[in-house]
Nucleic acid binder design. Structure first.
Lengths: 379, 379
DNA sequence: TACGTCCATGAATCGGGCT
DNA sequence: CAGCCCGATTCATGGACGT
């Protein structure tokens, strides 16, 4: 494979849990045009994409006439259309190239401001991507609006999307909830700008990259939508924040960047990073990750006897356990879930938390017995 | 002029500073299709537009809360579109009709969610509108994500645009700054949902409109981008929040609405309002309360590294920090609070004061690190 | 009256594995 | 691929009601 130009395999691949045989493009920065470089990667090889595309349209003189003459809205409209057309074509091109290298259940995050994010979002939808959330990064220390003509632009927008409506992306819900003091993570992220020691400066003290993103932002994206060992692509790598955080969190990365200065800065930056130890990268897991225990196991293991009586938490509903693992409540029989739903008149029910055993006056959910089985299995 | 159908001039025009001779459509609700109604208004007659168009939510089946109650979703027919193309055509049509009736220096605000706002924003740009800001309405009390599959959708986006790049829109910078405790008004607005007494209910106690917006939101829009006596258009009038706030603030309004039920509700609502009663109205101020800092922020910001060891104040209990912000203590994992409670055998625990970092022989609570983050956020 | 508990509800693109 | 069925999943707020 000749994905990389000479001298561009900038960062030595670091050890990761998997895959064992790393392709040579892994944990490197590919120099060159975004689309051309992406076309050299294999299809469906990337778990997560973070993209911070350029959005300098309208900020330069593109829309001014050379003579600065005043134009009415109609003429102006044509100029804008031309410019937006070009930006749209660029956006479609890199999004299509990115789409090809994404795994079917992968995620893509794109960040932008009001100058470009609406075009990016609409094109994502037009290309068949399925938006999961939009997220707002609220800057605690934004640049004030000096002229007092607008609201202080204190946020940027991030779109999280999958390749299709039916995709089942990684989403570490429990890890994020734990991270957030046991509350669901919301779509508003309050994070400071990238400043201070984190901001890369050149020898003259000038910032190396105009829009270096804070590592905290990438930390959260990678924690949400990837697992250790996953491959994270950043098609506009810049000074390598994505790669730095990926390495810190034990993910693999691959970047694309055109400017050699940025590649150099990113390379040394990432080399200085140490991957966290294996155990510290484990994520908080929820019940969904646990092995399924059929209710019948409680009988097989002797934790429940056939004929045992179960009740709801308040003792209003009673049912008898039968030897085959079904419940009998009046004339109705079925699984713990079905009978639980029936007695409540609900369409569904989690029998594990609904039904309880009694010891004296206290009741405990049969989920405790399931946990006992799991403990035995682990030991 | 025959803008209004009989019986539709629903709200008696109220006295306003100007214009002296009010056109008959002023301070009325026009019944019918948005574009057809707008085409009956004179060109360049409107100072400010607030539009809350259909979001084109594409909902699947029913959604239930964990307690099995059913979510009362917005599944009204007016929110259904066959395709993005159909939604785009609809959006272009009402935006072009709106553009004609806007004064050249007027402003338009459009609110939406990720389902539609990217299409609206791109079409605004395509039609020659000039985006001044995008604003995020952060909901203090959003509906949670019940299935744990996405981030809590805790915000909506508002686009503020003018008819052209050269427009000079009204922007009451100083008034907003005063409202905001002498700080520049930012692009993030923290406001609660429209609930409680403000929410219009019918005789059965059911909400009249599925998406009634809070008056505080409109209060802020009108305060920012209009003057007393200005004309404010809402092409999707609904139950008349825009009209209600306009009357309170001494602005004129004109609304368009198709559903008679909404018109009736809006009419009586607005009739009950007195102009200038807003003297006692205080704009919802940006909350200066101390922000909650989730434990995960310490990792994102680099104040703690994955793998770091924490202890209780006396060093009896030890735990390891994992990359996702969970603690690991033996086989037990969870948030700093849960693990703290577990090791003490307590039902709850303030992890911030219980867990300590060590430097040499001295220990300091991780609360100190949280204070460090707060300091950074304040800077 | 004050306080505590319970309940209802909000623009929501909300499951997944096995047969 | 459709169907079956296990079983996981919520936060802030306001109002009603009880003590």
């Amino acid at each position: 494979m000749s994905v990389m130009r000479k001298g561009v395999s900038a960062v030595a691949p670091h050890p990761t849990p998997e895959p064992a045989g790393n392709p040579e493009w892994l944990n490197t920065i590919m120099k060159g045009d975004c689309v051309a470089a992406l076309n050299k990667l294999p299809s469906k090889s990337v778990d997560l994409v973070f993209a911070d595309p350029p959005y300098n349209l309208q900020l330069g003189g593109d829309l001014h006439r050379p003579d600065h003459s005043k134009v009415d809205a109609c003429d102006d409209h044509w100029d804008q259309f031309e410019s937006f057309e070009a930006y749209d074509a660029f956006t479609r091109a890199w999004l299509m190239a990115t789409r090809r290298v994404m795994k079917d259940d992968g995620s893509i995050y794109v960040i932008g401001s009001y100058h470009n994010i609406f075009r990016v979002g609409a094109i994502l939808q037009d290309l068949g991507f399925w938006i999961m959330n939009d997220i707002v990064w609220l800057k605690s220390n934004p640049m004030p609006n000096f002229r007092g003509k607008r609201f202080t632009n204190a946020h940027e927008t991030i779109i999280w999307a999958t390749k299709s409506k039916t995709a089942k992306p990684t989403f570490n819900y429990d890890a994020l909830k734990t991270f957030n003091d046991d509350l669901q993570m919301r779509s508003d992220w309050h994070l400071p700008l990238c400043t201070g020691g984190e901001r890369l400066k050149d020898d003259d003290g000038q910032k190396v990259h105009p829009t270096q993103k804070p590592e905290a932002l990438l930390y959260r994206v990678l924690t949400a939508s990837s697992q250790p060992g996953d491959v994270v692509l950043d098609p506009f790598f810049g000074t390598g924040t994505t790669g730095a955080v990926a390495k810190k969190l034990g993910r693999n990365f691959v970047g694309v960047e055109r400017e050699q200065d940025y590649i150099d800065a990113a390379t040394s930056r990432i080399e200085a990073i140490e991957t966290g130890s294996g155990a510290s990268l484990d994520m908080q897991k929820g019940k969904r990750a646990e092995k399924r225990i059929p209710f019948g196991n409680l009988l097989e293991s002797g934790l429940l006897e056939p004929g045992a009586e179960l009740s709801c938490s308040k003792g209003h509903h009673l049912a008898v356990v039968r030897a085959d693992g079904s419940l009998k409540c009046g004339d109705f029989t079925g699984s713990i879930h079905k009978v639980g739903a029936m007695v409540q008149g609900a369409s569904s029910c989690n029998g594990w938390t609904f039904w309880h055993t009694s010891k004296g006056r206290s009741r405990s959910p049969i989920d405790d017995l399931r946990e006992e089985i799991r403990t035995r299995l682990r030991s």
